[in-house]
Amino acid sequence: MTRTRARLALIGFIAATGAAACTPTVRLQVDPIQIYAKLDADIRVRLDKELQDLLVENPNLF
């Protein structure tokens, strides 16, 4: 009976070791993205246009 238990334990150990060796590894690497944009001019043009429209609608604002 102890020989059977020893064999079952050995088979279980081999199976567990084999299962642990086959676990997949997933690696995700994301490189930094560099974005060069000039937004300042576009925002100023929009604000200037909005301000002109606002002044046309309300000439006594200032």
Rank of each mutant, 00 (worst) to 15 (best):
A37E: 14
I11G: 00
T17E: 09
D31N: 15
N60P: 07
V26M: 11
P24A: 14
V56W: 05
V56Q: 13
R7N: 02
P59H: 00
R44D: 10
E50R: 11
R7Y: 02
L39P: 00
R7V: 01
T2D: 10
A9F: 06
D31P: 14
D31M: 12
I11S: 08
F13G: 14
T4R: 14
A21K: 04
L55D: 03
R5F: 04
N58I: 09
Q29M: 06
L39F: 05
V30S: 10
A41I: 08
K49Q: 07
T25V: 14
V56M: 12
L10S: 08
Q52S: 15
M1Q: 06
P59R: 00
A6Y: 01
A19T: 09
P24D: 15
E57M: 10
A21G: 13
T2N: 06
M1S: 04
R5W: 00
R3S: 14
P32A: 09
I33Q: 13
A9P: 01
R46E: 06
R46N: 08
R27E: 14
D42T: 02
L61P: 05
V26D: 12
P24Y: 02
Q52A: 15
I33F: 02
T25Y: 05
T23Q: 10
A6F: 01
I14G: 03
V45F: 10
L28P: 00
Q52N: 14
I14A: 15
L51T: 07
A19I: 12
L47S: 14
L28M: 13
C22N: 09
D40G: 12
N58E: 13
T25F: 12
D53H: 04
G12Q: 03
Q52P: 00
P32T: 08
V26Q: 12
D42C: 01
V56G: 04
Q34A: 05
A9R: 10
T4S: 07
R44W: 01
V45R: 09
V30Q: 05
P59C: 00
E50K: 04
D42F: 06
P59D: 00
V26A: 11
